[in-house]
Design a protein around this nucleic acid. Structure first.
Lengths: 165, 165
DNA sequence: CTGTTTGGTTGCGATTTGCTACTGATATCG
DNA sequence: CGATATCAGTAGCAAATCGCAACCAAACAG
């Protein structure tokens, strides 16, 4: 009945995937509008109408996404104390934690020609552009894909990639 | 006719958004399956059946996403020279450039409890875990949201966030 | 030649999108 | 105060997309 005869490392991959946080994370912000709302929030958008006009998103979709992001702890929803009609959607600490993801994606887009870099993100202190985000070793050295492995916290190595040629 | 009377900074936001690479980038990988395929590819998955079994994705959807990612230059598709039935999907340099995005999202998920860190990404040279990815100033200092601004390449400051409030 | 693996495609019902119009609560204007 | 405008959503509905299952042709393997 040929139970499992995988040609390479899907077995290991699936096992590792069980504990991988990415699928859950992707359910929260791995969707066009959710990600654009996040970008908007990082850039100071705070109200329903601002998101709607700023992103050009349909109102029912926006409503749904905001609710999900609030439920997911990325955004916080509170009535505007200065104007009873308005609601303020602000980033939680968890939401702010996504800054590196958004900036990394932006830098990737710039590097690969998905839009010009007319403005660039900079350190407010001195106005100098931020560094290119990269994966860094313990000592700060930049690492690329083939310099990485998976290890268990005890230091034991685990092969997931490279298992298959 | 009340043309534009935005209460805060959507005007500036929309202007900046025109040149922002994020919407295009999001069209390419800002979707659940595309992102999971990317993660799979970074972890060594290479064949159609591997992705299908590894991710549990429907075959028609997988087919569609692979084609899009090839068209978008993230993956490269080539027939396996050793087996005429197989096709190898491998990351292009552009695709590998997304490594920081994926790792940053994974770290965020770990930090905020979307999955355990049974295995951790490490420097293959010494087996030590990689650093937490963050936005860094020119001198390597970690920067958080409120320490950032937008500047034009000539150094001229541009207010997008913080314009409101 | 027979059976299996691989990488798809096709059909179809269920879900999700996105547009437009509407509502109800609160503010602003005169 | 009364009329109007703003804000944050809902409601309805057509069109697009998803996801399952079945099917298929080409390329091996025995």
């Amino acid at each position: 009945m040929a139970t499992q005869r995988f040609s390479s490392d899907i077995g290991a991959f699936r096992r590792a995937a069980l504990s991988c946080p990415i699928p859950n994370a992707v359910d929260l912000i791995g969707e066009k509008w959710a990600f654009l709302i996040l970008r908007g929030a990082l850039n100071g958008l705070r109200h329903f109408e601002e998101f709607q006009a700023g992103l050009g998103i349909a109102r029912n979709i926006l409503s749904d996404r905001l609710a999900r992001m609030v439920a997911g702890g990325i955004l916080e929803r509170c009535p505007d104390p200065n104007d009873g009609r308005k609601v303020i959607y602000s980033l939680s600490r968890k939401g702010e934690g996504l800054l590196p993801v958004v900036v990394a994606l932006r830098q990737w887009g710039e590097e690969w020609g998905h839009g010009s870099s007319e403005v660039v993100l900079a350190d407010r202190r001195d106005g100098r552009a931020v560094r290119k985000i990269c994966v860094q070793a313990h000592d700060g050295r930049a690492l690329n894909l083939d310099e990485l492995t998976w290890v268990r916290p005890d230091g034991e190595s685990v092969e997931i990639r490279q298992a298959a040629e």
